[in-house]
């Protein structure tokens, strides 16, 4: 084995393309996605419905339905995820990656207490009863739950959505994962609750060095809480860069359009809406995936699919990126 100066990224996705089985054939859901994540870093995977943002993560974790076709490479600390044995894959999922879903209620057994839910994994791996309970209670406190002992005895239906999402986060922390994947973790929650959940995730990353991939449709939210943002559209990563620069000087017409579509909370003005609707990878035109909705499209955009390349401080998949460099400065806006 050779000694390398730079450690391999925690997660590296290269030239990912995925076709899912549909009926007798296959249908593309991801056509071109690449990104890498270092330990302790957070990445916002931003896109609208059908963009492939959730599928990207499912592919990276090798959680695709049987019969799916995957091209490209996924590496975890340098290890090829698709070459892992079944037992290695199981232990990787169980001990190194935590998944937080949009709807915790659908992922927590309604018939068992919060305490049972939190301790069953530990108990199964041989940890004693008392120790499991103490660990679970400590984690509930860690996520801001003030009466952990009472909560442990309650059933999921007795807890609000926000509380249950905190329980979900605590359950993920039980195994001390290196990476947390949060799929629209606050979309179903009220804003004031969203704030708490985001604060908890942010704190874990800062103080415990956990990496975070957050899947969201909310570019403002991603910009506020992640280091880097990858914008996905129709199965393709169209722009990637530091969260601050994507938010203030995004180059891809889709990233810029997404920001301009958000109604501002500070001023009233007619919205500059992107015409048409978001399309999925299988519906995308042969050239640039965004061409039909783009105000800057020229003939090249219709003929040739642009690939991701460095422009300014970002990576962007747009033929016209240089022409569109004039930075767009936006006032604060945001989803509640």
């Amino acid at each position: 084995m050779s000694v390398t100066e730079i450690p391999a990224p925690l997660l590296e996705v290269r030239d990912l393309a995925v076709d899912l089985p549909v009926g007798k054939g296959h249908r593309p859901v991801i056509t071109d996605v690449s990104f890498s994540l270092r330990a302790g870093e957070s990445l916002g995977l931003v896109g609208e419905s059908g963009s492939g943002k959730s599928m990207t993560v499912r592919s990276a974790l090798r959680l695709l339905p049987a019969g799916s076709r995957v091209a490209g490479s996924i590496r975890w600390e340098g290890e090829d995820v698709y070459a892992m044995s079944r037992s290695r894959l199981r232990s990787w999922h169980a001990s190194e990656v935590g998944f937080i879903h949009q709807d915790p209620r659908a992922h927590i057994n309604p018939l068992r207490t919060i305490g049972d839910f939190l301790t069953e994994g530990l108990r199964a791996s041989g940890v004693g009863r008392r120790e499991s309970v103490e660990k679970a209670e400590a984690l509930l406190e860690r996520v801001g739950i003030t009466e952990p002992r009472t909560r442990m005895r309650q059933y999921p239906h007795e807890l609000s959505g926000g509380l249950l999402q905190r329980v979900m986060i605590a359950s993920v922390l039980l195994v001390e994962p290196k990476l947390i994947i949060a799929d629209e973790p606050t979309t179903a929650l009220d804003v004031t609750i969203q704030e708490s959940v985001m604060a908890i995730l942010d704190d874990l990353r800062r103080h415990e060095g956990v990496s975070l991939v957050m899947i969201t449709h909310d570019l403002d939210l991603a910009a506020a809480v992640t280091d880097r943002i990858a914008v996905v559209y129709a199965g393709q990563l169209v722009e990637e860069g530091a969260s601050g620069s994507i938010h203030t000087e995004g180059l891809h017409p889709y990233s810029v359009g997404l920001l301009e579509s958000r109604p501002s909370t500070t001023r009233r003005q007619r919205l500059r809406a992107i015409p048409g609707r978001p399309v999925a990878a299988f519906e995308a035109p042969p050239g640039c995936v965004f061409v039909d909705r783009c105000a800057h499209a020229v003939d090249t955009c219709r003929e040739e699919r642009p690939s991701l390349r460095p422009v300014q401080r970002q990576l962007v998949a747009c033929h016209r990126a240089e022409d569109l460099q004039a930075p767009v400065v936006l006032a604060a806006g945001g989803a509640l």
Partner: peptide, 14 residues
């Protein structure tokens, strides 16, 4: 509670 650039979310105990 609205996310914006420079936003520092605060966790409230529940």
């Amino acid at each position: 509670a609205i996310p914006r650039p420079g936003w520092k979310p605060v966790a409230r105990a529940v």
